[in-house]
């Protein structure tokens, strides 16, 4: 083996140089993409501004007006309180929906009997437009916080369940065999094989849950008791305050992007081995 050490040294040096060059190329590519993004941003906002300036206020507002209205709504209007209310409802629903979804998905994926018993209902409800269930939920749970939380969690629940179920089903059978050959018991199997393989799927599911949860948030606020950001949106729509409406929509977009970025950060912490560029 001593004979091979100089050889492996030159090989690792070579590998390092290749890696370095690859990193520089990647940096270059990132810079170019950043430039494209900035340019696209300028073009879209410019178009928005020009179209807004040449259209009556009722139909559309220039970007600068929307920002001014956003400031007004935040500082003097109801928007700040509405955001606090809506975001806390959303986070509550996200947590409940994610926990139930993870448990349901794991149980369905790992225990065939459980899947046989409840799988069909999960798919049936998943295929139903959830909005259609709202009258029923209101009938059972009223129009308050409880009903809103249930609606938001239902929107979050299904994407999480399906993703986690797929994750558990896709645990690499050759890896469970490796663990078995080293005498892993069921607990060790969960800790070392199943849970780590499912983590990236959980993150993907929750990330989709964020998008669906924001939908659920607005729907619950508009279809049950008018409240939160849904209320601000509905009022500005009813009184034809288009700039206010656009300000609310802009806020939701920013929230959505923000929460997805948080989830992506979390993924890098929880699953550093999982590289989205290569899918592994």
């Amino acid at each position: 083996m001593d004979m091979q050490n100089p050889l492996s040294d030159t090989r690792s040096a070579l590998r390092e140089r290749v890696l370095e060059r690859r990193q520089r190329a990647a940096q270059k590519r990132r810079n170019r993409f950043l430039l494209i993004r900035v340019l696209s941003f300028v073009v879209v906002l410019g178009a928005w501004q020009i179209y807004g300036l040449n259209t009556i206020d009722l139909i559309f507002s220039p970007f600068t007006d929307v920002i001014a209205h956003l400031y007004q709504l935040l500082v003097y209007g109801p928007l700040a309180a509405a955001i606090v209310y809506s975001v806390s409802m959303f986070l509550g629903g996200l947590v409940i929906g994610s926990i139930v979804g993870i448990l349901l998905g794991v149980a369905m994926g790992r225990f065939a009997g459980f899947e046989a018993a409840v799988g069909m209902y999960v798919y049936a409800i998943y295929s139903t437009p959830l909005v259609a269930l709202i009258p029923l939920i209101s009938l059972w749970f009223g129009f308050g916080i409880e009903a809103q939380l249930i609606i938001i969690s239902m929107f979050v629940l299904f994407p999480v369940t399906i993703a986690v179920y797929n994750g558990v089903r896709n645990v690499d059978a050759s890896l469970t065999e490796v663990a078995r050959s080293f005498r892993a018991n069921e607990m060790a199997m969960w800790r070392h094989v199943i849970i780590p393989s499912v983590v990236p799927y959980i993150v993907t599911g929750v990330s989709q849950g964020v998008a669906m949860g924001l939908v659920g948030m607005f729907i619950s606020e508009i279809y049950t008791a008018l409240s939160g950001m849904g209320q601000v949106l509905a009022y500005s729509a009813n009184s034809y305050k288009t700039a206010d409406m656009l300000a609310v929509l802009l806020t939701v977009m920013v929230l959505g992007v923000f929460f997805r970025a948080v989830i992506e950060k979390l993924r890098k912490r929880l699953a550093p081995w999982f590289n989205t560029d290569t899918g592994r």
Partner: peptide, 29 residues
């Protein structure tokens, strides 16, 4: 307990580092 297997497709856990992969059977033990 006396046996250990080396697998054709390596059978390494992608979420474990080289050290953690090597340590895995001993952690189980």
């Amino acid at each position: 307990r006396q046996a250990a297997v080396v697998f054709q497709q390596f059978g390494l856990f992608p979420w474990k580092t080289v050290s953690q992969n090597v340590a895995f059977p001993m952690v189980l033990d």
